[in-house]
Design a binder for these strands. Sequence first.
DNA 1: TATAATAGTGAATAGTGAATCACAATTCTT
DNA 2: AAGAATTGTGATTCACTATTCACTATTATA
Lengths: 200, 200
Amino acid sequence: MRAAKVETKIRREQIIEKALGLIGEEGIAALSIAGIAKRVGIVPSALYRHFRSKDAVLDAVLAFIEDRLFGNITEVRAETSSALSRLKSLLLRHARMVSEYRAIPLIVFSDGIYAGHPERKSKISAFITGYLRGIEKIIEEGKQDGSIRGDVVASTASVLFLGIILPAAVLWNVSGGNFDMDAHVKNAWPVFIRSIAPDA
Amino acid sequence: MRAAKVETKIRREQIIEKALGLIGEEGIAALSIAGIAKRVGIVPSALYRHFRSKDAVLDAVLAFIEDRLFGNITEVRAETSSALSRLKSLLLRHARMVSEYRAIPLIVFSDGIYAGHPERKSKISAFITGYLRGIEKIIEEGKQDGSIRGDVVASTASVLFLGIILPAAVLWNVSGGNFDMDAHVKNAWPVFIRSIAPDA
DNA sequence: TATAATAGTGAATAGTGAATCACAATTCTT
DNA sequence: AAGAATTGTGATTCACTATTCACTATTATA
């Protein structure tokens, strides 16, 4: 049966979405044009009506992730004003994002994706460090208003902040979704707080 | 020129070593029989004298990583007796291991490796949780002797412990080795300590 | 409604990588 | 030193993947 004719704009979104799903379920190695096309419900060659190449699909996927990542920071800043509540909200969003898009940590880790693509590698590098800077900025603001200890090194603390979610993502990943990420985040948060909060 | 004849036992070690190097430098996607063989200095087909299949190579690589991981815990327990110094030593070893074998986080993260291999996936899952239990045990001992606060949840703290090294590994990875892992560990350690140490 | 533009299809092509095999060189055993 | 065992080699097969292309169906437009 012939697939319905759908405009490129929508097909592109579907392709990105399905590519993320495929990576999340079967790993980056399993990301093939045929695999994506099948999930979208079109024939492999039809995919080329919407993307010039597989690399173009990957670039679009990266852009999608970038948007999500920075979107979180923007939204969190708009949402609340205190440093600690911003960090907590960011943590929860990040946790939700990782469980929704299991593909994200896989992609970020996967050297395979940027082997032979230096631009892509530096792009990923740039948006991870950009994300970290966003966190650092929140931490600095907390130091200013006294909700975070003055001797906390923002760059170290931001990496540790990432450290709350990353190993949880690995466990969640490896256990096939059995690890309770929300519970971990809830338990880990006060522990993290203790390491950066002023003495009581 | 024909490669020298080397006994299987040694070739197997070389193959595992070179496979790790190849993954570390070019990603799991770049792991090919031809690629490994080239690094070892033999012809692709010769590799089959030493491993039945590519999957067999991967299993051996996993076993190698497992050994290293648990070896660290054993050695650390033998080395010192206090919980905190054991944890610190473990952290340093872990950091060294990750920078020596950049492949390790890539492999652990890569779903591609165990897609369609449930045994392999559960094996990885088992040795990560086993490693975490080793850390938890050290933490529990610290709680007993009072060097770690009684209200620290060992399972949460052990995941956070991993969180010191994991994001650092990502950054190191993505930056192409530019991130100073040792410095991060040195800075992060006292912050982590503060979150689990008794009140002064 | 005729025509142009858009999106989908199946077949064909070229490249790549894992695995096999018959054969050659080297090393071990006796 | 003869024969067996081990390891290395090159050619080849097989499956799979990205990509192209001529053609067809559908939708928009004039």
